[in-house]
Amino acid sequence: MIRTTLAALLLTTTANAGEIWVTNEKDDTVSVISTETLEVIKTYETGERPRGITFSKDFSLLYICASDSNAVQVMDPNTGKILHDLPSGEDPEQFVLHPDDRHLYIANEDDAITTVVDTQTRKVVAQIDVGIEPEGMAVSPDGKIAITTSETTNMAHWIDTETQELFANTLVDSRPRHAEFVKDGAEMWVSSEIGGTLTIFDTATQAEMGKISFEVQGVHPDRVQPVGFEFTAGDSHAFVALGPSNHVAVVNAETYEVEDYILVGRRVWHMDFNEDRSLLFTTNGVSGDVTVIDVAKREAIKSIKVGRFPWGAAFRPTN
């Protein structure tokens, strides 16, 4: 059954050649998965404890948060060579690239700071005091607002990217982990790992619009811990990693209702789609693998062994 599904997929995705790059937190490597063959095709060494991972707009550069090396590394994805390090502040965990393709907003987990780095001059542009253990990072599509969520302070901090100053701080449930702007920036979503919820904010007013909770059959609510999430084409649905419950939830982004739960690997953390968003790749930290989900069918179709504690995932096209 799985084989036939795969064969069908291979036929339909050939126009979608690409790679999913996965950071392996406890192996100091990135694994490169072909979105066609669904196999690891390369593994490159990185600095210590790689976590956040993202590509430049033209996919010619790969940025990696090497947390324990206290640097953001810039890699040539065609060769796997580290070109240079960017100053990042201490313990960079997660970051987001501004739509200007130039500024990185970096969460410094150990320092309660968000660092803004200019990737061209390789200089720190600003450091902004935020709450304890900053982690989730997002930038609005128009580039005007950056978000940092702080895990112990339990807030989303709203940064004006022009002044690099905070203009709002909104409380969310315990241990916020990830943030995303949705629907052309009209909404901003934050996941709370220990609170077990997603909070949705109206970007214009920073007011809370709604909250989503999860219920996985046979799993104690305490273990249902939303972390990373990504949206399908058109932002119609969110796929939400639920950490140690080993499930990904499918949330209707219009009604805020949870429609499905998909069993994946252990401690599912972050994810990314292939080019046409027909396949979703989730990192499963404890089982050390990546689960491939058929988005239309909402089924896990394959597990791919990667390094130890896969953390972040980023897609790049290769055709």
Partner: peptide, 10 residues
């Protein structure tokens, strides 16, 4: 210190 950092924003 954790409380004070959070309190700063509130």
């Amino acid at each position: 210190k954790d409380n004070q950092t959070t309190g700063r924003f509130l």
